[in-house]
Computed example of a mutant assay.
Amino acid sequence: MTAYAIAVLRPNAAPPHPDVLEYIERVQGTFAPYGGRFLSHGKRSEYVEGEWLGDLVMVEFPGLAHAHEWYASPAYQEILPLRTEHIPGEMIFLEGVPGDYDAGRTAAAMRSAAS
C-alpha cells in the first residue's frame, strides 16, 4: 500500500546554507532505488484552518517498507546531516488507504466497537 514521507521543515536562514542546497541537489537521486517521488516540495501552502509553522514536503513510496529502506539507506544517511544541522523540523511516515477506502465503513466499525 502506498506510503508517504512527510516533513515539516522550519528554515531559519535566507538564503539557505550551502549544505542545504547540496542536500536539495542530491536528495531526489536517493529515492530511485525505493520507488520514491516528490508530491510536494518548495510549493506555497495555503492554511485554511489553524496555524502551520513550517514548509511541507511530501514524498510518495510504493509502501511503508520502501520508505523505511530509503531513510536507512547509506545514500540518504550520508546527506541527511546537510539538512538536519541547518533546518529544524519533523518527519513522519504515513501509510495510505486503499483505493476503495470508505470513511463511512470506518465510522460504523468504530461505533460497533464502542457499543
Rank of each mutant, 00 (worst) to 15 (best):
R83W: 11
A114P: 09
L9I: 15
Q77I: 03
V48G: 01
A14K: 14
V20D: 10
G89C: 02
W70K: 12
L94D: 02
M110Q: 09
G35W: 01
G63F: 02
E78N: 14
A113G: 06
M91D: 03
E85V: 07
A113V: 02
M110A: 13
I24R: 04
L82R: 07
Y71I: 04
D102S: 09
L56G: 01
A7H: 10
P15N: 10
V57A: 09
Y101S: 05
G50E: 03
R111I: 11
M1V: 02
I6V: 14
T84G: 01
S40N: 14
E85A: 14
R26Y: 04
Q28V: 12
R37S: 08
I24K: 04
G29N: 15
A113E: 03
G63Q: 10
A13C: 08
I92Y: 03
P81Q: 10
G29F: 12
P33H: 06
G50R: 09
S73M: 06
E46L: 10
L56W: 00
G96W: 05
V59L: 06
S45D: 13
H66A: 13
H41Q: 14
R26C: 03
G42C: 09
P15I: 12
V8M: 13
F31H: 05
G96R: 09
E51Q: 13
A14D: 14
A103M: 11
L56C: 01
F38W: 01
A109F: 07
Q77V: 05
P62K: 07
A107D: 07
R37Q: 06
E46C: 04
A32M: 06
G63Y: 01
V20K: 14
S45A: 13
Y23R: 15
E46H: 09
A13P: 04
P18V: 02
R111Q: 12
V27L: 09
E22H: 10
Y47L: 15
H17N: 08
R105D: 04
P62T: 06
A3Q: 03
A14F: 14
Y4F: 15
F93M: 11
R10K: 10
E69N: 13
P16E: 05
H66Q: 15
Y47H: 12
P62E: 06
L80P: 01
G42Q: 09
V20M: 12
M91H: 07
L82S: 05
G89P: 01
E46G: 04
L9H: 08
A108V: 11
Q77T: 05
E46F: 05
F31N: 00
L64G: 00
E78S: 10
P98A: 11
A75V: 08
H86R: 13
Q28A: 12
T106G: 08
H66R: 15
A67D: 02
V59Q: 04
H66F: 14
V8E: 15
G89S: 00
K43C: 10
E60V: 13
L39N: 07
R105E: 06
V20A: 15
E25V: 04
A32W: 05
G104N: 11
Y34M: 11
E25D: 13
L82A: 03
T2N: 04
G54D: 07
V57H: 03
L21S: 10
I24F: 02
E85F: 10
E85Q: 15
Q77W: 05
P33M: 07
I87Q: 12
V59N: 03
H41L: 13
M1F: 01
L9R: 11
L21W: 08
